[in-house]
Amino acid sequence: MEHLNEQRCLRILELPDGATIDEISHAYHLLMRVYGNAEGSFTAPSMDEFSAEARTQALNQIEAAYAELCRIHTQTQRLVHPPAPVLEAHLPVDGSILRGVRESVNISLEHLASQTHIRLDYLSAMEDERFGDIPLPPVILRGFISAYVTEVGLNPDQVVPAYMQRYQQWQARKSK
């Protein structure tokens, strides 16, 4: 297998220099849909260029380039974002603590929204504990908070139950 430097990896994924991890992920998934599908109507199986070997070779190259780019980004991400602070187990967790953690690792709400596909106003309401502004079943909120804490580098097993307790307390207050 040829040596894959970062630039070569980006070319394989058909990306320009300086592509973000989001763009890399998007390009990889698109190419996997294209080359992982032998029956797509964009192939021409009768032509030698589209042989099974050529397709497998392209797929392997795409996989290798993506793996290498992910490795490079994981390395550099540690340099860009300081590691998330470790929260003490079973400490009460509220929205303001989550916001503090998010800000300490330099992740904006907009970035978080694009990563988790959660609406910006919901993310903001989650941090402010304005649960009335998130008119969704608790199971969805649990999914949201799990995605949030994972993205900011916390352990969801420790944090999600504590946060959901805050939500249940709010519900109990509301029904009184």
Binding site: E14, L30, R33, V34, Y35, G40, F42, E49, A54
Partner: peptide, 15 residues
């Protein structure tokens, strides 16, 4: 629309 991107990619990679 994705077919356009697929064609672009295949022309680059295979041709």
């Amino acid at each position: 629309v994705e077919m356009g991107l697929a064609v672009e990619s295949m022309v680059n990679k295979f041709f």
